[in-house]
Nucleic acid binder design. Structure first.
Lengths: 240, 240
DNA sequence: CACCATTTGTTCGTATGTATA
DNA sequence: GTATACATACGAACAAATGGT
């Protein structure tokens, strides 16, 4: 038997083949893999050998195993670095993926307690709310709501509609540099609506990121509440 | 009628009473509040008036409302600030809560891919694994696994058992200052075991925080994977 | 599957007291 | 004083979601 050395153990070879299937797109994210019995037949090995390969894939977070249901291909996890200069598009481009955005809804409304605190204005003051669906490689990644203080950013909706980016829209108002001063992260299960928009099951959590962006004079210009698909993103913070 | 001025609006008074009930422990976290109809009867007001009060509580995140099921008391959310000098105990103390820790399990094992990457050692090298249940005010907040490189930290288990704190244990090895250089956050539903330890439903997500701590020479000394109760914690990052 | 009770969510309409121009 | 706008409060009805039979 050819065992012993790590390089050519059968289960490692099987894991490599399955990994290639997943990364190559033969099995799409969310799809169910063949059962362990089927794989054992296909590779002419014992089911235990297959299980070892699957365990390796699970350790690499390429698959998720559910007892009694099967093995499912996991979504690719996008590392989302948060710094004072965090921009959605740039972050996605860094991962060699193409960012996208769809304007879901826009309205003028009044700041509630949370928003007023984030924007450092009094509750009830007028704000512009922008709901955007953020995409990476044409797959939804997050639903985010942005709040901009009015009247400073009156008319930003139309500019955003044309530009498709917050950064570009803000430039039209003379804001050439802004920075994120605060980010808070929490987690919960999605609402039905969020699950639908993110194209994910209601049993997969969303990560709620609340962020405050200020202009170069330190004045808050954007308070954002983004709901990220918990299975498709991982937030990374470097604290030197 | 006593309307108009904001100070003594009925709904504000109702919100105050309900908030006192929650914070005073009359209604415990997770418990269902009386229905809107019941509250309307109790306070002798219209259901709309109750709904306004409940909306205020929801904005304060004291309750969570589920259509068709009822209104539920939320857990208190602990803001957990992450900096290069993040210590669990200090963070909890900052929130005027008393930190605690229970050693669940300790073993010498070998570094897997993830751990070796975090500790910057080769896979298979010996490490010490410490599983700890972290508490705040005697309520479980997180289950964390720490990995310390061996042989540098041989015998740390016994010291930790006595000290009950990672920081204090590391001091015994001459590590008087260490800093967190990297934190990643993701989210998923808990395993049965995690839900049991955290005393939470399996439908409430956990936030998985992976952290790398290094000594003053930049050498990794602790790779940690902590699973926080998603309903009881909110991570906060300040990026200047 | 249909059916039902319970509970929250939404939308009409109505009335009243306060503040402001 | 009048007109207007606004926040507050009540009533009724219906829609939507949930859980159980």
């Amino acid at each position: 038997m050819r065992t012993g050395t790590c390089g050519n153990a059968i289960w490692i070879e099987i894991a490599r083949v399955l990994e290639a299937d997943i990364l190559g797109g033969v099995c799409l994210p969310g799809e169910r893999m063949p059962t362990e019995a089927e794989l054992a037949l296909r590779f002419r090995v014992n089911r235990h050998t297959v299980r070892r390969a699957v365990a390796a894939l699970r350790a690499k977070r390429l698959v998720r195993v559910e007892q009694g249901r099967g093995t499912f291909v996991q979504d690719a996890v996008i590392p989302y670095a948060v710094t004072r200069r965090t921009r959605f598009s740039e972050n996605i481009l860094l991962q060699k993926r193409s960012p996208g955005g769809v304007l879901l809804h826009a309205e003028e409304t009044r700041a509630d307690g949370e928003t007023s605190q984030g924007l450092h204005i009094e509750p009830g003051r007028p704000v512009l709310r922008l709901d955007v669906l953020r995409e990476a490689d044409c797959r939804p990644l997050a639903v985010s709501s942005h709040y901009f203080p009015l009247p400073r950013f009156t008319g930003l909706v139309d500019i955003f509609r044309a530009a498709g980016s917050v950064t570009a829209s803000l430039r039209a108002y003379g804001v050439h540099s802004y920075r994120r001063i605060r980010t808070s992260l929490s987690s919960r299960l999605p609402t039905r609506e969020e699950a639908r928009l993110l194209e994910q099951p209601r049993t997969t959590p969303v990560i709620v990121a609340r962020s405050v962006n200020v202009d170069d004079r330190g004045i808050p210009i954007d308070y954002g509440v983004a709901r990220y698909s918990g299975a498709r993103v991982e937030f990374v913070f470097h604290t030197g």
